[in-house]
């Protein structure tokens, strides 16, 4: 189920998609950073960029974009760097994360607990 296109991914394709760059400041994006388009695709735009802009008319996580594009998470992050640099997307970074080994505030986790109980 999971294995498929990516396993046989042609390295040349990944090279082309990212313009040969490796890891810009992709670390700004978490897998669950939510991406929102700030504009519509324009003619001549790299097709992956255009696809991301269409996908993210409403907020969508980096990992969902990766799945829909069939590209590894790190490649998607590089594509997102381009779009962020040029102001074509905005990024909503996670707040409620465990950072430096510390859990979020109890109030936040209480909200998570109650929401799950009410599912």
């Amino acid at each position: 189920m999971i294995r498929g296109a990516l396993d046989n991914e042609d390295p040349d394709r990944l090279y082309t998609v990212t313009g040969g760059r490796s890891r810009a400041d992709e670390s700004v994006f978490d897998m669950v950073t939510l991406i929102v388009s700030e504009c519509e695709p324009v003619p001549g735009m790299q097709s992956e960029h255009a696809r991301i802009l269409r996908m993210c008319r409403g907020p969508l996580s980096v990992v969902e974009i990766s799945s829909y594009l069939d590209l590894p998470v790190s490649v998607v992050k590089i594509l997102l760097c381009d779009l962020l640099d040029t102001g074509r997307i905005t990024a909503r970074h996670p707040h409620a994360a465990r950072t430096g080994g510390r859990l979020p505030e109890p109030e936040t986790l209480k909200k998570v607990l109650v929401a799950l109980q009410n599912l």
């Binding site: 978490d30 696809r51 269409r54 996908m55 996670p94």
Partner: peptide, 21 residues
Amino acid sequence: SRTSDSAVDAPLRESASDGLK
């Protein structure tokens, strides 16, 4: 296989801003 990229299964609400893992 998708016919359209905007055919995202179930969109998040507009206000969604905080992803948790």
